[in-house]
């Protein structure tokens, strides 16, 4: 699904699209816009998308990345889709806590737990 230049690893399992980031700093300013565009294409390609984003390779995140995640959340909500986040490093989770975005996103400790949570 992703092109050879993609900074995402994408695979589909049981109707759920799983996305991982290739680089540890993939959510920085230089990359986040492109990441958002790639994930938007995934959402556009599915009638009622179910998306699981894993942060297992990510050790940094800024408000630009949060903005992209919120845009993804809003697009999925409009399409009646579902979004889960998983494997978030404690330092990064603290950013979600400070901004109270842990209330907006459905966050799970592990990929397996997130997979089981889809309706």
């Amino acid at each position: 699904m992703a092109s050879s230049e993609s900074r995402l690893r994408v695979r589909k399992e049981d109707g759920i699209t799983q996305v991982e980031f290739v680089d540890r700093n993939i959510l920085d300013e230089a990359n986040i816009q492109r990441i958002g565009e790639e994930i938007s294409e995934i959402i556009d390609g599915d009638a009622r998308p179910k998306l699981l984003i894993s942060f297992s390779n990510v050790d940094h995140l800024s408000s630009a990345a949060l903005g992209t995640l919120i845009t993804i959340h809003n697009r999925l909500k409009q399409k009646g889709g579902q979004l889960r986040l998983a494997n978030i490093d404690p330092q990064i989770y603290e950013v979600f806590m400070i901004t109270k975005l842990n209330k907006l996103f459905d966050i799970h400790e592990s990929r397996d737990e997130a997979m089981e949570s889809f309706a």
Partner: peptide, 11 residues
Amino acid sequence: LELPSGRGVML
């Protein structure tokens, strides 16, 4: 909460 911007100063 669903607005994508406006968190930088807070952080």
